[in-house]
Design a protein around this nucleic acid. Structure first.
Lengths: 213, 213
DNA sequence: CTGCCAGAAAAAGAATACATTTCAAGAAAT
DNA sequence: ATTTCTTGAAATGTATTCTTTTTCTGGCAG
């Protein structure tokens, strides 16, 4: 769905890169560079960057836009948010689940399972994103989904760290499989419970990975 | 707090107007007009307007920026978010409450009480905002606070509607008074419960105000 | 009288040019 | 050798101008 105006096209391009993890912590986005690379003038690039900053995906510095560097404490704050929002969202999704979305989720779980066996973190990362986008798409509360999406970039950044451990990979796919089962059964309660457990497991794994804790 | 760059100054000016209700439902903000009025060029005005749009204060149309017209369904979605987040936030605030913030809250409740007696909606509106900003400022979870702040613009828009009823005004101040008491006692449980009740009361009042429901 | 089409005007999108700020590297002085 | 000041490059902020898109209006035809 290519939009008409350059601003949104550049926004889409950049956010894809950020989500894909193609953008490092030491890299900087500068409007002129982005504009030159994508063959437009500064203004659309600037608009896109400022929008990304307003949404929390980037932070503006006096020397380019960079990824927000989160302290462990801030990441734990996000986990608290996840505990509050995602169980409910999963419950709503399970209740409103459709066959088409279910199929997408099944495919993602299959790919994720294969990735775990192969020990391939990046592939599992992509599959997780597909899985998540699938069930979020049927949640009948746009405000709730938007809130979840807003912080989820940061969740992905954390995953890139914690997913280096063998055990974590298995936990992720296991959670997805159970959530899929709950959605297939339209069981909102089971979906809620499993999602809460999933978030807590993620938090536990993260706490383990903090050096000084 | 006069910022350095024009963009933020204009942003502050416009958001004040919006919050004060000085901007009507049929009015439009156009960058050239704003720029001419405030004596700057189009770009800072444009940046400010786009930021306001990104934050949900305005919606961009092909003929200027206007106030968002939320459907009742969308507003109810926000109420669901509030039920999920605000009780927890209130609990955290009560536990972490400080004397200085408590004083601000007390002052806001006093002003609000006077406003209810005088039947002055706008003054209560301002007092509510002060009250809310006060307790939010001590919540030790910035991600949570940010999520709440993001949707709160829409809450305020709803309040401007529902606060026309006499009864609603009293309910708001009553809720604030109880919440203040819970915070003073550092009682997180009471704060959580009262906040949940408060949100539900607001939702109920709103449902009543919907014509076709 | 009504409906449709064309043209004008208004507003946003985009590009370019100009100004200001900030960081950092290097030189000079202590 | 270290610190501080100067200077310049890099990046952001602001302004102006041109282009594109959309809407409103007026006139013409059915």
């Amino acid at each position: 769905m290519s939009r008409q105006n350059l601003r949104d096209r550049i926004y889409d391009t950049l956010i894809q890169r950020i989500r894909a993890g193609a953008f490092g912590w030491d890299d900087r986005y500068v409007d002129v560079s982005v504009a030159a690379e994508l063959g437009v003038s500064r203004m659309p690039a600037r608009d896109a960057l400022m929008r990304l900053a307003a949404e929390g995906y980037l932070v503006p510095t006096t020397r380019g836009f960079v990824l927000p560097r989160l302290t462990p404490a801030e990441i734990l704050e996000v986990f608290e948010l996840r505990r509050l929002l995602e169980p409910r969202a999963a419950a709503l999704a399970a209740r409103a689940m459709t066959g088409g979305v279910l199929a997408v989720m099944e495919k993602a779980v299959e790919d994720g399972t294969a990735a775990v066996i192969a020990g391939d973190g990046p592939v599992l990362f992509t599959a997780s994103e597909l899985f998540r986008n699938a069930w979020l798409s049927v949640v009948p509360n746009r405000a709730l989904v938007q809130s979840i999406r807003r912080y989820f970039v940061q969740v992905q950044n954390v995953r890139l760290i914690t997913m280096r451990e063998e055990h974590t990979l298995a936990v992720i796919v296991e959670g997805q499989r159970d959530l899929l089962a709950a959605c297939r059964a339209r069981d909102a309660v089971a979906a809620s419970d499993r999602m809460l457990r999933f978030v807590i497991e993620g938090e536990t794994a993260f706490r383990r990975s903090i050096p000084g804790e």
